[in-house]
Design a protein around this nucleic acid. Structure first.
Lengths: 210, 210
DNA sequence: TATCAATGTAGGCACTGCCAACAAATAATT
DNA sequence: AATTATTTGTTGGCAGTGCCTACATTGATA
């Protein structure tokens, strides 16, 4: 069955729900839970995301979500997978833009791009890189996490003069990127140091200091 | 009133509680909540720490803790403050040990020591550097966080050749340390990369690669 | 000795995740 | 086309949570 036809039927269902009283079957519940979940996540934070509230805001009974996700954690895992996919897509996109940029400037751009994702999707990023979200037993999470990591490796290799094992470099880079992301997201630096989400890049990368 | 006398009275109260049935007043509730809270935190994790369970395990009613902590968050803030103090103490202690160690070896030791704390107190570390715990409006948290940061600055200055602003170096170092801590605590690296809490230091610091 | 503030208890409210039993609508089978 | 089975909803309920109000007990204070 073609997708556009499904969309058409769905539209009919949605319309009929708006005219008559809401139908017994939602029709889109699984996807709606994901969409609304991502929205609620970013708006209200991970801590206060609840299946019941989600269900209510979709006009559906409190236990309806359990027909699609066995536990709340399963929903969160899917949300994280969504995030990992988005992240990998973004990274591959940015990789193309950086193809002709070398050396220190490349490093600067990587920081910029990584920070943009983390600070642009703070709650999603936090979920992805938490015990809740990093569930690598989830196929989708694992695959897309590896895609992201592969991009980082390729980006790092482009900066590596020697033919050494790039793992050390990419892991150092990764720790730095993730460290900065968490530091900025969770406001860890004492305020008198004068670092914030605007100027952090001035401090982030000073390899000549080592 | 001397401390030892208070301790003696407390011991009496505890003893009487063991002989007769538990007395109406606990006597040590605030401190017991902190101690038991730290224990439960490390044993069962931050997510499943509950005031009610804590109260029950101390043989006290479910609302008794609210006589000492207005909200659950307030208890967590105190636990975090406890962590920050412990952290600062450890760092200052280690600073003395590193006083005659210079250059790259010093850097290695800093990584070792920082990792030991984070991996040795995983739940406490996570609490301290989360939105819940990093409450810098708490005097004790702020003061001890600054103490820790000050140690890091001094340690970094000892490695700095030039007379430049040490903030960049210390912030890079900090991002790296915290990044590695979170990466190891939350199992973020894809397993096929082959990094774990045993061998991470082999990868952590390769400044010559930059 | 009477009073009072500190520190405990009991009951309850609103919320949560999730389980079991039942109902409706859609898909599959005869 | 009629019947059956499966999917996807609903209601009610359980145990757990943070935290509020009202009340009880106690040691310190006047």
């Amino acid at each position: 069955m073609p997708t556009c036809f499904i969309d058409f039927l769905s539209a009919l269902i949605v319309l009929s729900g708006m005219l008559e009283n809401t139908p017994y079957h939602h029709g889109h519940l699984r996807q709606s839970l994901i969409d609304e979940g991502l929205k609620a996540l970013e708006q209200s934070g991970l801590e206060s995301l609840s299946l019941r509230a989600l269900a209510e805001s979709l006009g559906v009974s409190k236990t309806a979500p359990y027909r699609h996700f066995a536990t709340k954690r399963d929903l969160l895992t899917v949300l994280a997978a969504e995030g990992y996919q988005l992240f990998a897509d973004k990274l591959e996109e940015w990789e193309k833009e950086l193809i002709n940029i070398k050396g220190k400037e490349r490093l600067n751009r990587i920081y910029k791009v990584y920070g943009e994702f983390a600070l642009g999707n703070p709650e999603l990023y936090r979920l992805m890189f938490s015990r809740l979200g990093n569930s690598l037993h989830s196929e989708r999470c694992r695959i897309n996490a590896q895609r992201s990591f592969a991009v980082l490796i390729r980006l790092a290799e482009g900066m590596l003069d020697s033919q050494k094992d790039p793992r050390s470099l990419v892991l150092s880079l990764y720790a730095n990127l993730h460290g900065w992301a968490m530091i900025l997201l969770d406001d860890i630096i004492p305020p008198d140091v004068g670092v914030n989400s605007e100027n952090w890049q001035e401090f982030a990368l000073k390899p000549e200091l080592y």
